[in-house]
């Protein structure tokens, strides 16, 4: 028997940290991450009746990514708003209480936010959300070959950015 469809309150309770982490890694700052999570949960609430039990976190990652990309497009239409990839808006993350951050978390987050969205999104979905290339292709609406290329190029850019900042390893 399939697992019952959770309520949105249960999603917030059980997957809130995941949602917030993905949102923060995409947006690069706490204010935008909070907005993304809230909007994502509104969509979750309205979409739960159509959710088919499966990879819940994959579905959530897709939703928060779509919210992020919608917001990026909206802000590009209104250039007076700071874009989420503005490095000046990066705030230090707040690691979960039960996790020990690496010594380079801030630098890695900064390098991540400096990536153009086309590269940042697949890298985050792959390495933060742990989605497969096929799931990422579905979430972003681009062919899987493009996903493969963007993840690889995004990682190379990220590595170059870290090295330029004096970070040689995680």
């Amino acid at each position: 028997m399939a697992d019952p469809v959770p309520t949105w309150e249960a999603v917030a309770r059980d997957h809130g940290r995941f949602l917030y982490s993905v949102a923060y890694r995409l947006a690069g700052n706490d204010d935008d991450a909070q907005d993304l999570v809230q909007e994502a949960l509104i969509r979750v609430r309205k979409g739960l009746e159509r959710y088919e039990p499966g990879s819940l976190e994959g579905w959530l990652a897709r939703i928060v990514t779509n919210v992020f990309l919608d917001e990026v497009r909206r802000r590009k239409r209104r250039p007076t708003d700071a874009l989420p990839d503005d490095p000046g808006r990066v705030l230090p993350p707040t690691p979960a209480a039960d996790e020990v951050p690496t010594g380079f978390s801030d630098e890695v987050q900064r390098a991540l936010v400096e990536l153009p969205e086309d590269f940042r999104v697949p890298v985050v979905l792959c390495d933060v959300s742990d989605l497969s290339y096929e799931q990422i292709a579905t979430a972003t609406g681009v062919p899987i070959g493009t996903v493969r290329s963007r993840i690889h190029r995004g990682r190379r850019m990220l590595r170059a950015s870290l090295l330029a900042g004096g970070v040689s390893g995680p």
Binding site: E9, A12, R13, G16, R17, F18, Y20, S21, Y24, R25, D30, A33, Q34, V37, Q38, L41, P93, T94, P95, A96, A97, E99, V100, P101, T102, F104, S105, V108, Q109, A111, L112, V123, V124, D127, V128, H152, R155, R156, L158, R159, L162, V167, G169, P170
Partner: peptide
């Protein structure tokens, strides 16, 4: 190179939202 980049991102900790956030969101 790409392994190091992948490992760096995967080593990022998951994050807790600020206090009171979830109450407001609910």
């Amino acid at each position: 190179e790409v392994r190091a980049a992948r490992d760096a991102v995967r080593a990022l900790p998951s994050l807790d939202a600020p206090d009171g956030f979830w109450d407001r969101v609910r």
